[in-house]
Computed example of a mutant assay.
Amino acid sequence: MIEVYAPASIGNFAVGFDALGAALAPIDGSLLGDVAVVSAAPSDEFVCSGEYAHKLPSDPNENLAYQCLVHFRAHVAPNMPSVKLELKKNLPIGSGLGSSACSVVATFAALDKFAHTNLSQVELIELMADFEAIVSGGRHYDNITPCYLGGLQLTGDLIPDKSIALPVDENWYYVAAFPGFSLNTAKARSVLPKELSMHAGVEFAQRLSAFSSLLLTQRFDDALSIMQDDIAEPYRAPLITGFNEAKASLPALGAEIVSISGAGPTLFTVCKTLEAAEKCAQWLEQHYINEQGFCHICKLDNDGTRQLNVL
């Protein structure tokens, strides 16, 4: 049996629409992500368990993880023995935490290990992006790549090996708050402008390139000072109840930035101290999330997708 864990991630990371993503690791040691378990079986079998399994279609053919198994057997490892694939769905659907990416990444990574196909990093990322596109409507890497590789990743088709790891200040904390309701990714994309003005395009390019360069030269405070989302946040914020109030209130508690994680509705903050992160988390628990929501103080998950055990 092979059990593989894939962590939640923050897509866009404010300044990097469809290009920047960060994997999350709660500081309390809990696993915030999905798990795929592959074991030998008399015939192919699929089971979906976990806290959010009931939110997925009951028909295996409509489940993204099962679709990954069918594709893997048909196109990657036709001689692989029959398997039982269990997806432990621990992330809410439509949360803005890379939930579909978690399912895809964990499944393909587990199948690759089980079948000993030894796909390269780029081959796996491309395969994962193909199936993430089924949900998101395009081959976006900003959840797939950090989920798989860990850390903060600048990622895309124009980048060699699909990704460049960017350093961050090790003192930074990230507060991720899921309010308890879902936001359909397609709906969140539909409100975005179809075109950018020349001015907006140039400013986006300058901001992302400067942010990346400042991180690479360890000018972390300067990087934080230009960390804002002018591409998606202004259009998505009205879809997320309570976001504008949080963005107005949290800086006074120590949040250096408040922005939307991926397509939302999860928001995230960057804080320089644990005390500030705790204050932000307390406010969010009281004012932003409902009984179905959650809030985690995190560091970056630098390990990315990993095998939990071999039995």
Rank of each mutant, 00 (worst) to 15 (best):
F17R: 04
F17I: 09
D18A: 15
A19I: 08
L20T: 08
L24K: 05
A25M: 08
A25R: 11
A25P: 01
P26Y: 03
P26Q: 15
D28G: 09
G29C: 10
S30C: 13
S30R: 12
S30K: 12
L32I: 09
L32R: 06
D34M: 12
V35A: 07
V35K: 02
V38L: 08
S39K: 15
A40W: 01
A40P: 00
A41H: 07
S43A: 14
V47Q: 09
V47N: 13
V47P: 01
S49P: 01
S49Y: 01
S49C: 06
G50W: 08
Y52N: 06
Y52D: 07
A53D: 05
A53G: 11
H54L: 14
K55G: 12
K55E: 09
P57Y: 04
P57I: 06
D59V: 10
D59A: 06
P60N: 08
N61G: 08
N63R: 11
N63D: 11
L64G: 03
A65H: 02
Y66E: 00
L69H: 03
L69I: 00
L69A: 01
F72E: 03
F72K: 05
F72S: 07
R73G: 07
R73H: 08
A74K: 14
V76I: 15
A77M: 09
P78M: 14
N79L: 13
N79I: 12
M80F: 15
S82T: 05
V83P: 04
K84P: 02
E86T: 14
E86D: 11
K88F: 02
K89A: 14
K89M: 04
N90M: 15
L91M: 02
P92K: 13
I93H: 09
S95D: 04
L97N: 10
L97Y: 06
L97W: 12
G98R: 05
S99E: 01
S100W: 12
S100Q: 14
S103G: 02
S103Y: 01
V104L: 00
V105T: 01
A106R: 10
F108I: 15
A109Y: 10
A110C: 07
A110S: 11
L111G: 04
L111V: 10
D112N: 15
F114N: 09
A115I: 09
H116R: 15
S120Y: 13
Q121R: 15
V122Q: 08
L124H: 02
L124W: 07
L124K: 12
E126W: 03
A133M: 05
I134F: 10
I134W: 14
I134C: 14
V135A: 13
V135F: 04
G137V: 10
R139H: 10
Y141T: 04
Y141N: 06
Y141G: 04
Y141M: 12
